[in-house]
């Protein structure tokens, strides 16, 4: 299992579109994927789950991966967070 802290950098936060990007990216990997925020944990392969995080710009999230391809999954996920989901920061 690996964990990594990331920050939401895009201005609009994790709304519907970024949430669908996260789920689509996670679904390309075997590993299970969870996101933790303020003691709340959701399944990162659920778009509704990600949306209910209601993570705003600046929010800190912990990404948790568990599975055979967890390392690759983390790299891919970090990249879309860093890119701010292709939106303005």
């Amino acid at each position: 299992m690996i964990e990594k802290e990331v920050t939401v950098t895009n201005r609009a936060g994790l709304h519907t579109r970024p949430a669908s990007m996260i789920v689509r990216t996670a679904s390309q990997f075997q590993s299970e994927f969870f996101i933790q925020k303020d003691g709340y944990e959701i399944n990162g392969k659920s778009i509704i789950g990600v949306m209910t995080l209601a993570a705003e710009q600046g929010a800190t999230l912990t990404l948790v991966f568990e599975g055979s391809d967890e390392q690759e999954a983390l790299v891919a996920m970090e990249a879309i967070f860093e890119d701010g989901f292709g939106e303005v920061k």
């Binding site: 936060g13 709304h15 519907t16 509704i48 949306m51 209910t52 209601a54 993570a55 705003e56």
Partner: peptide
């Protein structure tokens, strides 16, 4: 149940996204 969680957000924009649900 899911909408209530989203509607509790401080961000008006994210609150409005509960409309998708």
């Amino acid at each position: 149940k899911h909408r209530q969680v989203m509607e509790a957000s401080d961000s008006e924009y994210l609150r409005e996204r509960s409309n998708d649900l």
